[in-house]
Amino acid sequence: MPDISTTYMGIKLKSPVVAASSTLTKDIDNLKKAEEAGAGAVILKSLFEEEIRQDSGLDIDTAFHSEAYDYMSADAAMVYGAGEYLELVCKAVKAVSIPVIASVNCEGGKWWAEYAKSIEEAGAHGIELNISFMPFDAGISSQEAESRYFEVVHEVKKTVKIPVAVKIGQNITAVPYMVRRLHSAGASAVTLFNRYYQMKINTKTLELEPVHYFSQESEAYSVIRWVAAVAKESSIDISASTGVHNADVLTQYILAGASTVQVASMLYKKGFSAVTELNQGLGKWLDEHGMNLEDAVGLVLRKKIRQFQTLERVQYIKIADGSIIR
């Protein structure tokens, strides 16, 4: 089998397949299964900013809507407290030999940067900042909203030495520019993209309820476009997320420029054997093309310039017979 090892955030991984942050990765036995199946790294279930506030006895930020906070507290976010999360990090690092990346889901603010230091001291090999500030206030401009991302990264990097990745949503105005600024602020990697919690209105009770659904393969294709765009404009490491349900999609992400690919929905559907399936499928493709993973990362950008132009202008170009321009 060809070499499928990769380097992500300066950390050597034996595989580009990463177990994404989910309820599966808050369980030590599942982390062991991920390692046995061949995962390159695991990203622990996110610690939410609200949990840190709750454990610290701090007031809820006035920018965070109280009703939304009640919803998050009651259902989606409150999985464990801040102290328990540090204990999870410690246990995870001892339980597996692959890199353990902690995840913090934050709205913004400088006050929690010290907690990142606690995560580092607990032994995490890296931190993924899942920055989910949503500017619902009409008085907040896009520049102000995006500046919070840079402030968070800057403050965290002042307190930790371990590498930091930033997971952003797809609702950014200028994704390559945003990523370049995050890189300048100290981020070693970026994850494209965050899948936000969705909510529906129960028309009988008039209450908000969470909507849980797995990703679909079709969701990957808009992400692949942005992975290629970011890889062309920045040297930052890219972790692709969403829609990975087979080795073909994994390979496409790699060819577009991703160093790693995060998997969650496929793990829920097939179990951790999905990691082995993905590794084997990628290895088969590499073997058929006589290359290692390092050769394949971003290959499309290096070899198919006209195809990349198609990615940039796909909304304007009518592609004859549904095929890509060659």
Rank of each mutant, 00 (worst) to 15 (best):
M266I: 15
Y69N: 11
K110Q: 03
D59H: 08
K12C: 05
I162G: 05
R53C: 00
K32C: 02
I11E: 12
L286E: 07
M199A: 14
N292G: 13
L86Q: 02
G139S: 11
T242A: 04
I324M: 08
A39P: 15
A63Y: 11
M9H: 11
I60E: 13
S97G: 12
V89S: 11
Y197Q: 05
R326K: 10
I238D: 00
Y196G: 07
A145G: 08
V17F: 06
T23G: 15
G81C: 02
R302M: 10
T23L: 13
E144T: 07
K167L: 03
Y115N: 01
K91A: 04
R313W: 07
G126K: 01
F150C: 00
H65W: 04
V160P: 12
S21Y: 00
K284E: 01
I131P: 00
A274V: 12
G290A: 06
V175G: 01
G38Q: 09
F64M: 13
L250S: 06
L86T: 00
I168P: 01
D287I: 06
D70H: 12
Q280L: 13
Y115W: 12
P163A: 12
G186F: 04
R195Q: 06
L44F: 02
L293H: 09
S184T: 15
S5L: 05
L129D: 08
T25V: 02
A63L: 10
K32F: 08
L250E: 01
Q198I: 00
V100G: 08
F272E: 09
A34Q: 11
V314G: 00
M178V: 00
V244F: 15
K284A: 11
I324E: 03
A20M: 09
G271T: 15
Q54Y: 14
G281N: 13
S218G: 04
L47W: 01
A165L: 08
T251Y: 15
I238H: 00
A82V: 03
T260C: 15
T191Q: 02
V160Q: 13
T6G: 05
T251R: 15
V179S: 06
Q307W: 12
K269C: 06
